[in-house]
Design a binder for these strands. Structure first.
Lengths: 201, 201
DNA sequence: ACCTGTATTGACCGGTCGGCCAGTTAATTG
DNA sequence: CAATTAACTGGCCGACCGGTCAATACAGGT
């Protein structure tokens, strides 16, 4: 065998603690999770978590930082490989973002927790992401492909909001009469949003 | 004098407890608030809270129920006194909703907490609200004033999402470059949204 | 005036919280 | 093969948690 049960691997241990903490914090929020839960779930002692991360707050900050950094990197990669900015690229970008949130509900919840903490740190990491997206829209505006009389940063903020809140408030919307599934909502949003973004003759 | 310091007023006491609990729960969430905090803030004993409300969970449920009922009643009143449904009524309705959330940040936070709890109870109270709004839009569609190929319930959901998330993620957006204030965001949203809702020739 | 119900209090309960510390054990270094 | 360092453990701490309970104080009905 490559390793016996008493072999130590501090990096793996840190990783397992972070994974357990991530899952629990995302599911229940900082205040409702105890160090003992994280310890049990990751198979280590409570003291060891303090040894590696110092305190519950420090662990929480690290979990947030890593998750948001991973999110920002993922999105930046998709944004970089995009082609010439035009209306159809924006449409596909929004659809991509929508699908990403659908497939990564933890990201949505994590953002929601940080918002309720009034924690602005999440916004610093993806600020350049927004700037990049806004720049694309500005280029499309300059070419006459999108209406020029709206703030490009607001365009990004709007579809991010429309997508994020759709998944964040799922339990809420499911009680509303006439509201359809993910695809129907996205389709209707794209109809209205893209049409409203076209330049007027 | 009408009352001496030892006069009892159980209704007022209940009200003060509810007010303190509301403020604390909205600010910090259910798990991070202790019964002792609520007791100190409302000037009563912890035991008295249990006497009046039974448990921390029951108090939290009551706080949510009351706040959301007040919100729903407020919005229903504005909706009832509205005139003939057309595009301009919708525009003013959205602006009203936006201002309401701006002036009642507690409502936004309370919804966010319930969403993270996957609590669907909030959706039942305002379901009829959404139905009422969707019905207005359906009427405007039937008269050819709004495009008919979008789900009216989705139209309501979209602007609710765009407004709610704007205030919910304030700390987040404030870090983004180029994002303006409340009025600028609302104006840009209305430009795009209302234009996208017009019927195509 | 008494009596009954309830509003209200303070002390107390078992349990859990985050954090600390003295130790033991495994890897690294020289 | 020591000696040093870091990973890791179990037990303990004071503080705080939500909840209970017996006792008290006040109000209204008769």
């Amino acid at each position: 065998m490559s390793s016996n049960p008493t072999t130590r691997d501090p990096d793996l241990t840190r990783e397992r603690i972070l994974a357990a903490a991530h899952a629990l914090f995302v599911a229940k929020g900082f205040a409702a999770v105890s160090m003992r839960e994280i310890a049990n779930r990751s198979g280590v002692t409570k003291s060891l978590i303090h040894h590696h991360f110092g305190s519950k707050e420090a662990l929480w900050e690290l979990v947030k930082e890593r998750a948001i950094a991973a999110y920002a990197e993922n999105q930046a990669a998709e944004l970089r490989e995009a082609s010439e900015p035009d209306a159809d690229l924006l449409r596909r970008g929004i659809a991509n973002y929508f699908r990403f949130l659908r497939d990564n509900p933890g990201v949505v919840r994590l953002f929601a927790w940080t918002h309720l903490d009034n924690d602005p740190s999440c916004g610093r990491l993806d600020a350049e992401l927004v700037q990049l997206g806004a720049e694309r829209i500005r280029q499309a505006q300059a070419r006459g492909l999108l209406r020029p009389d709206v703030n490009p940063a607001h365009v990004v903020t709007m579809f991010v909001n429309a997508c994020t809140q759709w998944f964040s408030a799922r339990a809420h919307h499911s009680q509303w009469p006439g509201v359809g599934g993910d695809q129907e909502y996205l389709d209707d949003f794209l109809k209205i949003f893209m049409e409203g973004l076209l330049p007027r003759p």
